[in-house]
Design a protein around this nucleic acid. Sequence first.
RNA 1: GGAGAGUUGGCAGAGUGGUUGAAUGCGGCGGUCUUGAAAACCGUUAAGGAUGCAAGUCCUUCCGGGGUUCGAAUCCCUGACUCUCCGCCA
Length: 425
Amino acid sequence: MLDVKFIRENPEFVRQGLINKNAKDVVDDILQLDEKRRTIISKAEELKAKKNQVSSQIPKLKKEGKDTTEIFAEMKKVGDEISQLDNELKLVEETLENILRNTPNIAHRSVPIGKNADDNVEVRRWLPEGFSFDNDFKILDHIELGKKLKILDFERGTKISGSGFPLYTGKGATLERALINFMLDTHLQNHGYTEVLPPVLVNRESMKGTGQIPKMEEDMYFIEKDGLYPIPTAEVPITNIHRDEVLSEKDLTIKYVGYSPCFRREAGSYGKESKGFLRVHQFNKVEMVKFAKPENSYDELESMTNDAENILKALNIPYRILMLCTGDLSFSAAKCYDIETWSPAEYRWLEASSCSNFETFQARRANIKFRREDSKKLEFVHTLNGSGLATSRLMVSLLENNQTPEGKVIVPKVLQKYTGFEIID
RNA sequence: GGAGAGUUGGCAGAGUGGUUGAAUGCGGCGGUCUUGAAAACCGUUAAGGAUGCAAGUCCUUCCGGGGUUCGAAUCCCUGACUCUCCGCCA
C-alpha cells in the first residue's frame, strides 16, 4: 500500500510510477478523496472538542444542582451531527482504502522501464563447465523421464485430486525430499538464515498483509467453512510472522527460510504451458524472507538472489538472471530478479525463482515497524522474499539436464548423501 | 461439539457510567549521589491522525464491529482469540 502523504507530496512522481507499471492513474482520485477526508475530519474534530469540553463540566453542574436539560438537548444535537460526519468520513475512507489497496507498488529507480516480459533485462547467466545448448542424443522431457523411471505419476495424481496435482513415487519422491533438505541446509549453514516451518492455512488478514488480496483473490484457494486460505507461497505466513509488531533495530536484518507446499488455482491457464510440472496447483518451495532496514534492503536483495544462485551452481544447473522491467513487476514489488533455469527438452528458460524487494509496501499493509536506536522513531521495515527455490520447475531442469543417452538420471553429487543413491534407472 | 472464565499501556495488574489516556508495580530513558557500578531518591516514559513554518492546540484509541446514553474501559448485542472442565481424536 502506498502512503497517502507521500502521494500528496509527490503526485507527479507517483503518477509516472503507476503509468510505468501499466497501472491505472488513480492519483487524482486519491488526492480528491484525501482532501475530502481531511475537511470532514476537521469539522468533526471541532465538534468533538466542544462535546468533550461541555461533558467535562456536567458533573460539576450537577453537583451544584443546576438544571442540565437544555445542555443535554444541545449536546444530543451535537452528537447527532458528529455521527453524521463520522458516517460520511467512513464512506470516504473506505473508498480511499479500496483504491489504495488495489494500487500497485512503484518501481525502484534502478528498474528498467518497459511494457511487458519482452523488456526484461538479462543481467547475467551461468552455465556449468562443458555445457552445451545442443545435445548429440535424443533428449527426453521430464514427463517422459518420469514415466520411464517410474518417479512421477501425473495420471494417478489426477485421479486422486485433479490435474495439476503431481504424485511423486519411489526415487522421485526421495529426490524431491532430498532437494528440499539440501536447499534448507545450504541456506542455514552457508547463508545465515533461521528456519521456520509455518502453517499452510492462513486467515484473510495475512493474505491482505502480503498483498495477495484483493488483487489476486481469484487465484487463491479458499476454505469457506473456516475462512482460511491454503497458502500460494510461504511468503504469506512467514512475512506475517511479524504483522503488527515493532522490531528492534539491532535485530535487523531478520532472515527466515522455510519449506512449505504451495497451492495455486491458476484459474484460466491451460494447454501447452501447463503440461507436467510447468504449471501445477500444488508444488513444494523453499522460501527466503527478509525484514531489513530501508538503507540495506537493496544490498539484501542482491545477496538473497546470490543465495538462490548458489543452490543452482551446486546442482550444476544452467540459469540466467533477469531484472524485471516496470511493466512486468508484480503488484507488490519495487524490484525483482527472476531466476530461470534451462530446460533442454522445452529448449527454453523456465522461471524457478523470483527475488523481490517490496520496500514498505507490505510492511504498511501488515503494519511491521522497527524503532531506530538513536532517534527512537518508528519506521516501516522493508520486506523481501525470494524462492530458494521452487522444486517443481527445478525438478524439470534437474532431470532433463542430468539425463544420460540411455534415459537414466544421474543424481547431482551434493544430493547423493540425501538420496542415498547416485543414479535413477 | 457442550459448559464456564477472560482479553486494559513494553510487561504484570487495578479500575463497573462523568476531568481515567487510564492507579500501582516492573522494565526503559534522563538526572542526583558515587572514583566507577549497584542500591536509594527525583523526573520522564504510547500510537495514529487533523492543523501549524514552528512551539503548540485538538481528535481518536482500554481485542474487533454495532448499540444504549448528554457522556462508556465500564451497560447491551455480535465476532475473533485465549484459558479451564467435559466429550471426541491423529
